[in-house]
């Protein structure tokens, strides 16, 4: 059969690389073919998600941040300083997490989706016009964030003025000065050319951009056991591949940026400098619990337990 797989990024970005690997594996080990639909070709993130729920698409990627409007608990990935920054710990967290492997699948199943896996896409860093070493440096900085309540809360806590803006307008708004900062995963800073219109990159280690891979549940449940195995194996291969890929990409992206703009200032904040940001993050956790209640609390606790386990 022909299976269709849509994702939120371009072919050469992390989700695109994952999808290409998945396609390669499935096609090598079965008679099925997979058509890939990168960013925007079938609509925005919410559109392709609905199309997967409707069964038009068999596979879809969506960052849990976007899924928050549908599954509020998925916003746990926006709680700052929850995910480890150390690559080894990060990778074993994504492999072994009970929250991801046991608590989330039923929530996705309620929406007609089979959660196949979640993977990290890279460390989220900010780009600004002036150096940032403490929350005070973000004072009066109009900072573009996705329209997500927790993300807005985070940047308020960090001292900035969160400002909503569609993705397509970020570049121009940084250029003219409507906003003075924005955050994105490292590779996205490079591919979106954010460094062309900002002078400083700052990593405070608050988050790693995460994506969920899903299948339409009816489609998945209807697969023969052999086909299910093909899908699962392909997911596993692509998952292993992408863990290494994103780790290398984080380095490579900054190298590319430095090459394109040698005068760029890149600051990886020290643990000491990060502490005030970490302290501010507590209120975001509270906001998350407020929004999601008991299920949210359970997931947050499990995430923390999972992290303990990987340490």
């Amino acid at each position: 059969d022909t299976w269709r797989y849509a994702f939120e990024e371009a072919m050469d970005e992390v989700q695109g690389k994952f999808a290409q690997k998945f396609k390669e594996e499935v096609e090598a080990n079965s008679d099925h073919t997979i058509q890939l639909f990168p960013f925007g070709t079938l609509g925005e993130s919410a559109d392709i998600m609905e199309q997967a729920q409707a069964g038009i698409l068999q596979f879809v990627d969506q960052s849990p941040g976007f899924t928050g409007a549908l599954i509020p608990e998925a916003q746990v990935f926006f709680v700052p300083y929850l995910l480890p920054q150390d690559q080894e710990k990060l990778q074993s967290f994504f492999r072994e997490s009970k929250a991801i492997n046991e608590l989330f699948p039923p929530l996705y199943a309620d929406q007609g989706l089979e959660l196949l896996t979640m993977f990290p896409e890279g460390e989220v860093c900010m780009t600004t016009q002036e150096p940032v070493h403490s929350p005070a440096d973000l004072d009066e900085v109009k900072f573009r964030v996705m329209t997500n309540p927790l993300l807005v809360k985070s940047y308020e806590a960090f001292g900035a003025t969160p400002t909503p803006l569609p993705t397509g307008e970020i570049y121009g708004a940084l250029q003219t000065g409507i906003i003075q900062g924005q955050e994105n995963p490292r590779f996205y800073l490079e591919s979106m050319k954010m460094y062309e219109v900002t002078d400083v990159i700052t990593c405070i280690g608050h988050n790693n951009f995460t994506t969920a891979v899903m299948a339409n549940k009816d489609f998945y449940d209807g697969l023969a056991d052999g086909d299910k195995e093909v899908v699962q194996n392909a997911i596993d291969v692509a998952f292993d591949y992408i863990l290494d890929y994103q780790a290398e990409l984080d380095e490579a992206s900054f190298d590319k940026i430095k090459e394109a703009k040698p005068e760029i200032e890149i600051n990886i904040l020290s643990d000491e400098e990060r502490q005030p940001f970490k302290d501010a993050a507590g209120q975001v956790e509270e906001a998350f619990i407020e929004m999601t209640g008991d299920t949210g609390q359970k997931i947050l606790d499990q995430m923390k337990a999972d992290l303990e386990a990987t340490n």
Partner: peptide, 18 residues
């Protein structure tokens, strides 16, 4: 400039928007 078409092209093809 500013041209939304060029921004989209720049992002999709990984080309410098400036």
């Amino acid at each position: 400039p500013p041209s939304i078409g060029m921004i989209i092209y720049g992002v999709v093809s990984n080309t410098s928007i400036s």
